[in-house]
Design a protein around this nucleic acid. Structure first.
Length: 578
DNA sequence: TCTGATCGCGCG
DNA sequence: AAAGCGCGCGATCAGA
């Protein structure tokens, strides 16, 4: 059952479609519902499941509707996010020949890829968690049911026009489903939040920084370090937070650094270096994840960041506010399971090199990937058994290293794994030439920047060099895009499969005593998921995580002999994982 | 006084 | 000027 959901002057309008492909309305008269009654209507439709299948909600943007539904206690099984899917279809090489992609404004852009023209109009203000009975939070009108249906029909037509060779149509369809599922997961994770113990966080801050200072003042330990630095560097007015100021002070003391980055400072042995590095570490903690952060982002024992699905061109998620995807190891001890619960932290080990092996169908690398530790497997084949070298070589291949040790190791890697190295080299050359590359499931890299096009018209030798530099830069981007993006494809499928299994556990009953396992997805970080689960449901969740990883591999690559092992830790707090 | 760029560092 | 990929964010700094 396919249901369009659009904003309407009197609230919301919904309409059933006969089937996905044709986007024909099943009933001529759409149903209108006041926003205050929408949650009940949605709940009813989810529960009744006409035709046995749960409905698929087709809406402009998941974040317009779903947070408020969740706030009303209503979940949906599945959706189709027109904005996210439209962006994929507009740029995918798989659908590049379709009217849908051709009618999209594909002018080279410097800045983030623009969504398809048809989807640009008014964006309602993001008002997370607001209830429908707050009129200001209602999804903005501007997208009528008819427009929604036309857009959906256009997208379905584009999908139908994708060739079946190499299973491309199915792959793209899978990507659209996974992306829509990701939008649902993101909204649900934001709603649930990461369990966060303020008291533990404050303990961490106090132990490193001292007691909480009055606003605008440095914590005592930071202040003491600053005073020590001023003395050691004979610079009474030094502000260690100012790179320029700091650089001058260092030079005055004969410390000849070209920047004040910590890796460069480490090269020096001056007595001021150690306290300086300590200052930098603590000042970062204070500024990024100190008391102010706690005040702003943690409420009621939960950290609720805003996830931005599709926020990275490669398909990775981004986040807004609170630095959700950069929680430093230092404060992970504050992420703590509720009483009677556990955190299950699952990590897809060495995901990207494994994805590369599968993409390139490199059987030698597949063999190394049968090892739980892929880098050790590779070291066993070359690099004199040196795991660190094997790792550096492989990362260098995926990132496009040309110099340094990683660059020197490349020929050796190419001898052992010619197919894998050739795969990323091809992606790099395509990007240098202004071409587009595509992930396993069909997400394509954006067209070259304005700067790239301009640099093509270079005449002087100087401009020529500059053009080559820009081209190489784009080559490194496309080289990495195929790997990072295909890994994101895999992770989206993993997440979607896991959500489905965790939902099934809730109603499954745990063996006699009734009541299922109420486990929640709490956090997702590129190749890592965290599940917050009741202690007696941990076993079932672990199985679900493993099964989902297997399913994701099959969905992307079929039955190939490459392993995607998941390492798991069952812990009370996040710092104890890994 | 405000705005946008730059530096630096956290995460994968 | 050259640079191994992708991000978000805070403090400082340059310029309007």
């Amino acid at each position: 059952m396919y249901l369009l959901l659009a904003a309407h002057p009197h609230g919301a309008a919904l309409q059933e479609l006969t089937q996905a492909g044709h986007a024909q309305p099943a009933n001529p008269e759409p149903r209108t519902v006041a926003l205050s009654g929408l949650a009940a209507v949605v709940r009813d439709l989810e529960a009744r499941r006409p035709g046995g299948q749960p409905p698929r909600w087709i809406w402009h943007r998941t974040e317009d509707w779903y947070p408020a539904l969740l706030a009303s206690g209503v979940e949906v099984e599945r959706c189709y996010d027109l904005t996210l899917c439209g962006t994929i279809l507009a740029f995918s090489q798989f659908s590049a020949h379709t009217d849908y992609a051709r009618n999209t404004d594909r002018a080279p852009v410097e800045d983030p890829v623009l969504p398809p023209k048809a989807l640009k109009p008014p964006r309602p203000p993001a008002d997370q968690g607001a209830l429908f009975d707050n009129p200001a939070a209602a999804p903005a009108p501007g997208w009528t049911l008819e427009e929604l249906r036309a857009e959906y029909a256009a997208q379905q037509a584009a999908l139908a026009a994708v060739g079946t060779a190499e299973n491309r149509r199915n792959r793209l369809q899978l990507l659209l489903a996974a992306e829509s599922a990701a939008a649902i997961v993101a909204a649900e994770m934001q709603h649930a939040g990461v369990p966060w113990r303020e008291d533990l966080h404050e303990q961490i801050l106090a132990s490193h920084l001292g007691p909480r200072p009055p606003v605008g003042q440095r914590p005592v330990k930071l202040d003491a370090l600053a005073a020590e630095l001023r003395a050691l560097l004979n610079s009474p007015g030094l502000n260690p937070d100012s790179p320029q100021d700091l650089m001058r002070a260092l030079h005055r003391n004969g410390i000849e650094v070209k920047s004040t980055r910590k890796w460069e400072l480490r090269e020096s042995s001056h007595p001021a270096i150690e306290p300086l590095l300590e200052y930098k570490k603590l000042s970062r903690l204070h500024a990024a994840n100190g008391w102010a952060w706690l005040d702003a982002w943690v409420d009621g024992g939960r950290f609720r960041p805003e996830y931005v699905v599709g926020g990275v061109v490669s398909g990775r998620w981004a986040s807004r506010g609170g630095g959700a995807l950069q929680i430093p190891r230092q404060v992970r001890g504050a992420v703590h399971a509720d009483p009677g619960h556990k955190l299950i932290v699952a990590d897809a080990s060495q995901l990207e090199p494994r994805v590369l092996g599968a993409l390139a169908q490199d059987s030698a690398m597949a063999e190394a990937a049968r090892d739980q530790d892929l880098y050790a497997g590779i070291a066993a084949k070359g690099f004199g058994g040196d795991r660190a070298k094997a790792k550096m070589a492989l990362l260098g291949a995926m990132y496009g290293a040309t110099s340094g040790e990683a660059g020197r190791l490349m020929p050796q890697l190419a001898r052992i794994y010619p197919r894998a190295v050739d795969f990323v080299e091809r992606a790099a050359r395509a990007g240098e030439a202004g071409g587009t590359v595509t992930t396993r499931l069909g997400r394509s890299s954006p067209p070259p920047s304005q700067q790239w096009f301009l640099s093509q018209r270079s005449s002087t030798a100087e401009e020529q060099r500059r053009a080559e530099s820009i081209a190489r830069s784009r080559g490194r981007f496309t080289r990495n895009f195929v790997v990072q993006g295909s890994a994101a494809d895999w992770a989206a499928c993993w997440l979607a499969e896991l959500r489905r299994r965790l939902r099934a556990l809730r109603t499954a009953g745990t063996g006699g005593s009734g009541g299922g396992v109420r486990a929640e997805l709490a956090f997702f970080l590129h190749d890592e998921v965290m599940v917050h689960a009741p202690a007696d449901g941990v076993g079932a969740c672990i199985a679900a995580i493993e099964e989902s990883a297997k399913a994701a591999k099959e969905l992307l690559f079929g039955p190939i002999p490459v392993e995607f092992p998941v390492s798991m830790a069952v812990v009370d707090s996040y710092d104890l994982a890994k």
